[in-house]
Nucleic acid binder design. Structure first.
Lengths: 334, 334
DNA sequence: CTGAAAGCGCTTACAG
DNA sequence: CTGAAAGCGCTTACAG
């Protein structure tokens, strides 16, 4: 591999001049510049990014840690981040915490070690604030993605409250008053927001939410299946079976739907169903499920924008973005 | 940030010794070693990976370029690669070519510039062999993922031929003789293999494949919808409408299914349908589609294994892995 | 307008 | 068993 020294000697200039031509960082006589450029071509020279990064403050790379690379919504966010980063000439370092705070911490440390210019984090369920403190103390620009925190950090997520309010309105307008909420792991901020949003929206309509219809804390689809089944059975025995089920994520919806099918309940015949995130191509299949579709790709893009802004102006005021989701109304709630 | 010099002076040793302790690369007296380790702790020293990589041959990072980050199958492969890389302490640099050879080339160059230890490539549709030549001339370990090539390169994909043979057997056993094949962009090797596998399997059963029932070349779901619709219409007029449709990817299946629904054909009532790759949670929805499910996650993991093997032994014989897919038989083909 | 030289933070022959 | 020093390939004050 040719180095900057080879180029310099071939062009008959100093390495300073080569560097300045390459970076366009000071004026160089046109003819000299020309000679340098030919020498670069002749030698097939390619700047060594490692050596360059060592001297500069930047590595032109960013790190992304997602909490569940398996979920389609996260895959879309990754896609959005990749796209935006590529557009800016930034390389993307990707890691997956699989909802494990220890793995998350290790991933963050690895990314810090690699001197990424900034970090984007969709935090794991039980993630500790200490990790964010750690990043702050390294003075590394950070953006929280999807799973936000009540902290002074740039973040981008969706407006869960408004989406939930619209969904509850939609259901109650159709006469549903006993709605079962399948909300999952409430340590996950987006799920907690949906949970809280549900209770607030129901309260606003003067509707009670019996504790028996709140199905929370499940993490896997199998667990959710069991819990929903138990809730259905218990509520039926108490003579107050719900008329609608509202799931707060794709995985929760899958578990819930299977439980409904297992109980012989038809959607929408015997039970209405709506979900956040939802399934791909859901308009092609039965039941067609009413879905709150978050703009996952744009979420990823926005995270990169926030990061760039922070990189350019470290003292800019904290910005928290809430994108609006779109609700796809389908026959499952008719 | 503390440097190796700080640690050395605090421990009262040379930087050589610190380096050797850190890398466990030569014997150091236990007490000396102890002093170094305390000094590391006291200073909060963290080795600079950039400087380290500059001196070593390796960066402990690998690059992955996928052709369509939007497809669930590719998302799973990315997931598998990430998981395997993390396990080995390797950072993953991710890029997406979006089926554009120019973007693919740019992504590869960027990864080469970053001195990744190796590359995993799921090539774009129109990708040129010149790019592989370029990587070979850089002597960079390379593994082809999912989309294989008839070249002397390590690769891992699925056995499309056997899967297609099983699918055709399944359909013909049920009396289907006029089968429409929706095969997409035949420049994509996996799709071409499925296409060829179909013809071979049909020939083996002595069944003709009228050109009118081969629907190929479509790239988007919308295009596929149009083309399938046209083929259905034309074949119906000729009095030889197919009794089954076989789609070679999720996206193609989506376009085809929509066309069937649009034509008022019920699956499986009026038309059988099977697909490669398929939809997530397909057992929860109607129609339940028979699906050839490739082991996408394991494909990603295997690609990393192949890469590591190549890294350890650059002169090892080329290895080409073909994993078997599982066929999920469902009611769409009953 | 350009160059000589220091220095980024490591690793690794070389020498003792 | 350990250290002094060269060197990886750049960037960037400093000097003229």
């Amino acid at each position: 591999m040719a180095t900057i020294v080879d180029v310099a000697s071939l062009a008959g200039v100093s390495t300073s001049t080569v560097s300045h031509v390459l970076n366009d960082t000071r004026h160089v006589e046109p003819e000299t510049k020309e000679r340098v450029i030919s020498a670069v071509k002749a030698t097939g020279y390619r700047r060594d990014i490692l050596a360059r990064s060592m001297r500069r403050a930047r590595t032109d790379s960013i790190g992304l840690v997602v909490s569940d690379a398996g979920e389609p919504a996260f895959a879309d966010m990754v896609h959005g981040v990749e796209e935006a980063a590529a557009q800016l000439g930034l390389s993307l370092l990707l890691a997956n915490s699989a909802e494990d705070p220890a793995r998350e911490r290790a991933a963050v440390e690895a990314l810090l070690d690699r001197r990424v210019d900034g970090l984007i984090l969709a935090r794991a369920a039980g993630s500790s604030p200490a990790l964010l403190e750690r990043i702050r103390e390294e003075k590394k620009p950070l953006v929280l993605l999807d799973r936000l925190a009540d902290l002074d950090v740039d973040q981008v997520g969706v407006n869960n409250q408004s989406a939930m309010a619209a969904l509850v309105e939609h259901l109650t307008d159709r006469g549903h008053e006993r709605i079962m909420l399948v909300s999952g792991d409430l340590r996950v901020s987006s799920l907690r927001e949906r949970h809280d949003g549900f209770r607030a929206a129901m309260a606003k309509r003067g509707l009670e939410v019996p504790a028996g219809l709140l199905c929370e804390g499940t993490v896997t689809a199998a667990e959710t299946f069991d819990r929903v089944q138990a809730v259905l059975r218990a509520s039926a025995e108490a003579g107050e079976r719900p008329t609608a089920v509202l799931a707060c994520s794709t995985l929760l919806a899958a578990g819930a739907l299977r439980a409904l099918q297992h109980a012989g309940l038809r959607v929408p015949g015997n039970m209405a169903l709506a979900t956040f995130d939802g399934f791909t191509y859901s308009d092609l299949f039965q039941p067609q499920i009413t879905t709150v579709r978050q703009p996952a790709f744009r979420l990823g893009e926005s995270a990169v924008s926030l990061l760039m802004r922070r990189l350019e102006d470290p003292s800019a005021p904290t910005r928290i973005l809430r994108l609006e989701s779109e609700i796809e109304f389908r026959s499952s709630t008719e």
